[in-house]
Design a protein around this nucleic acid. Sequence first.
DNA 1: CTCAATTGACTACGAACGTTGTCAATCCTA
DNA 2: TAGGATTGACAACGTTCGTAGTCAATTGAG
Lengths: 202, 202
Amino acid sequence: MTVEGRTWAGTTLTDRRAMRRRQLLDAGLDLLGSGGSGAVSVRAVCRQSKLTERYFYENFADRDELILAVYEGVVEDAHRALVEAVDTAGKGAGARAEAAVTAFVTLILDDPRKGRVLLLAPLADPALNRRGTERIPMFAELVREQLSDKTDEGDRAMTATALVGGLANLFTAYLGGGLDVSRERLIAHCVRLVLGANALHS
Amino acid sequence: MTVEGRTWAGTTLTDRRAMRRRQLLDAGLDLLGSGGSGAVSVRAVCRQSKLTERYFYENFADRDELILAVYEGVVEDAHRALVEAVDTAGKGAGARAEAAVTAFVTLILDDPRKGRVLLLAPLADPALNRRGTERIPMFAELVREQLSDKTDEGDRAMTATALVGGLANLFTAYLGGGLDVSRERLIAHCVRLVLGANALHS
DNA sequence: CTCAATTGACTACGAACGTTGTCAATCCTA
DNA sequence: TAGGATTGACAACGTTCGTAGTCAATTGAG
């Protein structure tokens, strides 16, 4: 009878570990996405998830590892949503950009915690900024697709940096209630930004 | 003999208070601009400035008040530098934009701590983001000057938000060593962004 | 010199933290 | 039922924190 076979309350140890990991990540997302970086401590996460510290250390070496795992999980979710939307949208650059932006705006409105993790945490949290994590990395890809190969690397890097920064600032402002425009207008504006990327070059 | 007239080690109480305030603000800038938000505590600031906590509370009600004062001081410095540069530059929009960007890039390279306070702290520090403090507010002004009155408020707000975000991201990346371009090219690119603001509209 | 303000160098308290350990109760297979 | 794994509910330790207080030394005007 191996460890995996033996059950407790009907579940295997492997399953229980996985469930506990899920609980901790969810608690991490709650805290990071609402109270911000400073609200996330080992004890706070354990309190939020109603698990003892033993189970924290069963899954993560330290707080930083949890934070990174939360961030990466949200990046994956967002990336998946964007890829699906873009695959459904078809071949045109305009349609793809609109699908991507729409998917992202929908994701952050459905779950503002995820928006805050993607848009604020990489700058705010020492564990993430030490790692050089990017805000909204999935948009860096989208922007790169729009940039002409005819310009040099420096200009492309700057244009991409500016565009991602612009998008991030728009999403952040909208999410925080600081932009008094409809969702549709925001999306249209972001699409214009993405599609107009090459115009930003000389 | 009033309090102000009485001296201690050759200085009045008023002067000593002012000097201590200066020391605390400098220590705050050191810590916020190098170790980031989490490095700034009452005790850390007192250690850095070599003053006891009594003197901290002589000048500030709490940490948040110090942080805000540090931020506002740096905003003032930056604003002054930009205004002087722009006043010297003359009437043309291009010259003004270039003077402003050049002054800002110079300021953050001369003192990267100030750059980090202006570009990162508003998002990273709870005291500042609770206050809704803006990154590089002096550029919001500059951008506003470029925006046509012929577009509606929503579009203007979005364009300004995107531009400030783009500029902030460029400065942040450059300051952090993540942009492999010369200072001159960065400046030129930023100027193009500012001057091309209206092109971002329909 | 006297006296009061000021300063320097601590102490103290309660709170929260990260990490680890202990003990008893519960679970479940043999 | 027995025994070992697992769980729950703590305790413990040292560290750092925010805030405030104490005591003695220093300063300087009258």
